[in-house]
Amino acid sequence: MTVLVVGAGPAGLAAAHALARVGEPVTLVDKAQRLGGAPILSGYAKLIPSGEWARDAIGGMVRRVQEAALVRVATTTTVSAFEGEPGRFTARLSDGASVPCAAAILCTGFTHFDSINKPEWGFGTYADVVTTTQVEQMISSGQGVRCPSDGRKPERVAILLCVGSRDRQIGREWCSKVCCTVSANLAMEIREELPQCHVYIYYMDIRTFGLNEDLYYWRSQEEFKVKYIKARIAEVTSDGNRLVVKGEDTLVKRPITIPFDLVVHAVGMDPNVDNRALAEVFGVGLQHHGYLARGSAYAGMALSTRPGVFVAGAATGPETIDDSIAQGEAAAIAALGVVRTSAVQAA
């Protein structure tokens, strides 16, 4: 009997691969047309902390799964019904297929925060206010970092951290975990491409946790002269030529108004917009922010609130790619446990 893996981002790819490696058949479904999840679909550039291009790193994971004989891939597919008990679930797919499965792993990921929800920061109003994802795109497409309004090379770039994170005004009371490191990384890439360009990062706290401290936070300052200012920007407007950014430099205690060519929102990770529907279909709980709830902190990291259904990756909260992969593997071993147990019981 197969294991159903929903979502083919880093966590889902890792889970599918891990199960196939130990000889278990997997049905891997994804609502998108392509495999790879956010890093591929959103065109990420170089990943943290490896520095590898998303296309290579995640692309490799995709290929591995596509080549695995035991993995049946169904793209442009969602799960419309799911019932049964651990060891004998039945999933009905949107293409009409019925899939008997011993266990399911939800690796349904997150949704990028939509900056349109913070109108005072200018996204949607000014072409030259963009998101980190768009800058990733500019880099990964090879077109380089340019001002969308006229294609010019920016001379001054501001990266605003915590856009859609740590913000009660819009009900996002979590830290999205990766944006600090991602932003430091992007800042270095911008400086590398455009040495004349000044890059400022506006932060409330810098959370380049663990080994990212020197690799990103320190290196971006020491080698790339990226400037960090402890300030949350109040508003982004325009004087008709350049963007105007209003903040307080909290450490020197002065209100500041500074011109920029390009303002980058370091967008956070929202719960997947489909989570409500997913929770309904799979009969699993959501935690209070709307991510998929974990069943236990200690009994097993991949547990959902329903036996036999496991969770991994950013579906459960903001997560790095590395940890999503680790969680995907953890979910695979948990699912394998169900497969083996039910096989013994059936025998």
Binding site: L41, G43, W53, R55, D114, F123, Q134, Q137, S140, G142
Partner: peptide, 18 residues
């Protein structure tokens, strides 16, 4: 460095969500 070789159309599709 490796060219991601996304076509303009693909690049556009990738950020269409925004």
């Amino acid at each position: 460095w490796k060219d991601a070789k996304l076509s303009p159309l693909q690049a556009r599709a990738a950020t269409a969500w925004v």
